[in-house]
Simulated assay, not measured.
Amino acid sequence: MNGKLVASLILLIALVAGGAIYYLQMYGYYDRVIPTPGQDVQLVARNSDVSEPIAYTDFQAIDANSSPIRYRACFTTDLSADTLAATYVERQGGEPRVAPGWFDCFDAKAIGAGIEAGTIRVFLSRKNIDYGVDRVVGISSDGHGWAWHELNDCGDKNYDGTPVGEECPSRPQPGSTGAGG
Rank of each mutant, 00 (worst) to 15 (best):
G18Q: 09
V133P: 03
Q60F: 05
G3R: 15
Y56E: 08
V33T: 10
R72S: 07
R126W: 03
R46S: 06
M26S: 08
Q39H: 15
Q60H: 13
P35I: 09
R121I: 03
F59Q: 04
A55M: 08
I54C: 04
A14R: 05
D58V: 03
G155C: 14
I111T: 00
L12F: 15
G132M: 04
G132K: 02
V89W: 02
L11F: 14
A7Q: 11
F123L: 09
V16I: 15
D160L: 10
C74A: 11
Q173P: 04
R121L: 02
Q39S: 14
D104T: 10
N152K: 06
I54L: 05
W146K: 03
A86L: 08
D78W: 03
A179V: 02
E166N: 12
Y71K: 01
I54S: 02
D142M: 11
C154I: 13
S66V: 15
A20W: 14
R46Q: 12
G155I: 09
W102P: 04
W148C: 01
V137Q: 00
L124Q: 08
W102F: 13
R46A: 11
G94Y: 00
C168Q: 04
L151V: 06
I120P: 00
Q60D: 07
S140D: 12
I69C: 05
I21T: 11
L15Q: 08
S66F: 11
R135F: 14
G145F: 03
P100Q: 02
A73H: 05
N128Y: 13
C154R: 04
V16M: 12
Y71M: 12
G132Q: 07
P37L: 05
P53C: 07
Q173R: 08
Q42Y: 02
D58A: 15
L24T: 10
A20E: 10
F123A: 10
N152Q: 11
Y23D: 09
D104P: 02
P169D: 05
Y131A: 05
G178T: 06
N2A: 10
Y159I: 08
T76Y: 01
S170D: 15
H149E: 15
L24D: 13
G114K: 01
I111P: 00
